[in-house]
């Protein structure tokens, strides 16, 4: 179980990607996308962990710290993810207004009309 984090990352990533592809409902697709992105966040955080290291806050008692840089990167990526999700949900609201549905197949049918 040395690589437990990474197995979780792979499982979550594939689950998310599968939901994006397999689901017909636009909101559920976005949930899948969110799970996919979260898996990447966990990947970065796992990379940052130094075994035996403490949180990267300077104290007298600690000599070994985890790498803070990926944490900062992922803070940025989380913000980007939230912006993407907000835009996507806004689009879903507009799609619902314009098509009266948020199901992939129904929208495809109505697009052709």
């Amino acid at each position: 179980m040395d690589f437990f984090n990474y197995w979780v990352v792979i499982a979550l990533m594939m689950t998310g990607l599968y939901i994006v592809m397999a689901q017909q409902n636009l909101v559920k697709k976005l949930l899948g996308l969110n799970i996919f992105q979260t898996a990447i966040f966990i990947l970065y955080i796992s990379v940052a962990k130094v075994l035996g290291g403490t949180a990267p806050i300077y104290t007298e008692s600690a000599t070994l710290y985890s790498n803070p840089l990926p944490h900062v990167l992922i803070l940025t990526a989380i913000v980007v993810g939230i912006a993407t999700m907000a835009l996507a949900l806004a689009l879903v609201v507009r799609i619902h207004g314009a098509y009266g549905s948020i199901e992939d197949d129904e929208i495809r049918d109505r697009s052709k009309q």
Binding site: L17, V20, K29, L33, I40, L43, T84, L91, I95, S111
Partner: peptide, 25 residues
């Protein structure tokens, strides 16, 4: 259809950017 096109591009584009993010990770 513009909304629908934007939504589809958003899904694909986000997956593309996320792949890029995994790669540089």
């Amino acid at each position: 259809q513009a909304l629908w096109a934007a939504y589809q591009y958003l899904i694909v584009g986000t997956i593309g950017a996320s792949f890029f993010l995994v790669g540089i990770g």
